[in-house]
C-alpha cells in the first residue's frame, strides 16, 4: 500500500497520520501539498488521507475553502477511479463540503470544543476500512473537534441508513446507541459514513491517535490494518 497524506496550510494531524502509516505500520507514505493540481495528481497512491486540523483556519464554514483547493480535483478523480479516500475530523468536513460524502457538519450541540475519548460501534465491517473489525464491535477512540455535529436531511439520512452507509456510531461502553453517548449532537449518533461504493470514508474520531499502546488505546489500528489488507488483495 502507498498512502498520500494531503497537507492543507492549516492541517495539524498530517504528521500523526504519516507516523502511524510509516513508523507503526511500516508502509510507504508521502505528503501531498494542497496546491498540487490535476486529475492525475494522486494517481500514484493507493489510499489518500485528508487529515485533521483547521485547513484554512476555518473562520468560514469548516472545510469550505479546502473543498475548492487545487488538490481536490485529484482527490475526486482518485475516488472516481475507485481508490481509497479517508477523511479524518477536518478531512471528513472537507469531504462533506466537496460533495464526496452526503450531509453537512454543524457546530457541536454544546457549542464547545470536545477533546475526550468516546466509544464507537462498528456498523459495517465490510468496507475496506473496517474489515479487521466485526460488526457491533465497540471501539474506544479520541475525538477533538468543535464542529462534529453531523447533519443531513431526513431523506438523505434514510438513504444512508437504507444503503448501510453509516460505518461508525457513538455508543456507550456496552454498545448501546444513546443520547448520552453522543458527544456532539450528531444525527442518529453518526460518527462516520461511507459513500455508496464504499471507497470513501469520513469520520470525526481520530484512529491515528489510538494506534499505539503507549497512547492509551490501540483500537484505531484495525482501521489501518484493514486498509493495508484491502490493498494487498487488489
Amino acid at each position: 500500500m502507498k498512502a498520500a497524506v494531503v497537507v492543507f496550510p492549516g492541517s495539524n494531524c498530517e504528521a500523526d497520520t504519516a507516523h502511524v502509516i510509516g513508523d507503526v505500520l511500516q508502509e510507504p507514505v508521502e505528503y501531498v501539498w494542497y496546491a498540487t493540481a490535476g486529475r492525475e495528481a494522486l494517481a500514484a497512491y493507493d489510499c489518500v488521507i485528508l487529515p485533521g486540523g483547521f485547513a484554512y483556519g476555518d473562520y468560514l464554514r469548516v472545510g469550505a475553502i479546502a473543498a475548492i483547493a487545487p488538490v481536490m480535483e485529484g482527490v475526486r478523480a482518485h475516488a472516481e477511479r475507485g481508490g481509497l479516500v479517508l477523511g479524518i475530523c477536518n478531512g471528513f468536513q472537507v469531504l462533506l463540503e466537496s460533495g464526496l460524502l452526503p450531509g453537512a457538519i454543524l457546530r457541536n450541540a454544546s457549542l464547545e470544543f470536545r477533546s475526550q475519548w468516546v466509544h464507537l460501534r462498528v456498523e459495517d465491517d465490510r468496507t475496506p476500512f473496517t474489515r479487521r473489525y466485526r460488526e457491533g464491535q465497540v471501539l474506544k477512540m479520541p475525538i477533538a473537534h468543535g464542529d462534529g455535529n453531523y447533519f443531513a436531511e431526513p431523506q438523505t439520512l434514510a438513504e444512508l441508513e437504507g444503503a448501510g452507509q453509516v460505518v461508525f456510531r457513538y455508543c456507550d461502553a456496552a454498545g448501546r446507541v444513546t443520547p448520552a453517548a453522543n458527544p456532539n449532537g450528531s444525527a442518529a449518533n453518526i460518527a462516520g459514513i461511507r459513500n455508496r461504493r464504499g471507497n470513501v470514508l469520513g469520520m470525526m474520531p481520530h484512529p491515528e491517535r489510538c494506534s499505539e499502546p503507549l497512547l492509551g488505546g490501540v483500537d484505531g489500528l484495525g482501521l489501518w490494518q484493514s486498509v493495508v489488507a484491502a490493498l494487498v488483495q487488489v
Binding site: 504528521a15 507516523h19 502511524v20 513508523d23 464547545e112 477533546s115 475526550q116 491515528e208 491517535r209 492509551g216
Partner: peptide
C-alpha cells in the same frame, strides 16, 4: 475546562491532564 482543549494532537500524550504531571513521549 480541559475537555475543551485538544489534549491528544501530535500523538505524544502518554498521561493527559488530570495526572500529577503531563507525560509526553519523545518520538
Amino acid at each position: 475546562i480541559y475537555r475543551r482543549y485538544d489534549q491528544t494532537v501530535q500523538t505524544n500524550t502518554v498521561q493527559a491532564p488530570g495526572g500529577d504531571a503531563a507525560v509526553l513521549r519523545l518520538k
